[in-house]
Amino acid sequence: MNERSNEISRRRLLGFAAAGTSGLLLGGCDRLNGSEGFRSVLEDTENLTMRSQRFLMGDRLAREFGESDISPVFKANGSLGVTDPVYRGHFTQQFAAWALHVDGLVRQPLTLPLTALKGFPQRTQITRHDCVEGWSAIGKWQGPQLSAVLAQAGLLPEARYAVFHCADVLAGSPYYESIDLIDAFHPQTILAWQMNDQPLTEQHGAPIRLRVERQLGYKQAKYIMRIELRSTLAGLYKGKGGLWEDRSDYAWYAGI
């Protein structure tokens, strides 16, 4: 009898301990998650990740695949279309009167119609697109290297970042993204106007989208209207270099 009640109280104690531990753990983690100081420590490791990845990869290429590896259905995500009337006008004219603007810290601002972008030497690459959510799709992309476009504009010495201003609006804010010059001048960084041998469809970012192949999907900005060269990301929207970075604290360097 006595043994039995001991047993029960021990079991209850263990139960309380388990529930208490789990409660403390979750409550503690949520509190830490909301703490600016703790988050900034975690965000420091994003820097460590970027530096160590950059050290390991140098200017190596992302893997390129064969035609037979291409995903039969390339999932579209994020914005699937654009409501902006100016964009809609260009879309109905198949972007015949549309032009990409390259400005900011450049010697010669550019206005490049689609024909001009097609006139640059083209790079074609079959690469894997990795969504931050976890899925992957393989597609074939074609377009001029960003490095060639930037070389034509001529960067001023203060330029550090290429910012891509997009036509789509997501969760009430205009989409934008940014990369630094290491990725901007990487050979696989292209302004793709073709996907799987066809002009980009609207859901995949017509007329052009960025391919920056060693980073995740949210860096692959669609519907690019303007490329702005800047010395800093501060002062632009919320200053974190991209819509998702500003909105949800996604890492600016999305190499993992």
Binding site: C29, E46, T49, V132, W244, D249, A251
Partner: peptide
Amino acid sequence: TIPSHYSLADARLWHLA
């Protein structure tokens, strides 16, 4: 889950640190 509300971004922040 960490955090206890849905947040892919925050979970990645913890996970990758």
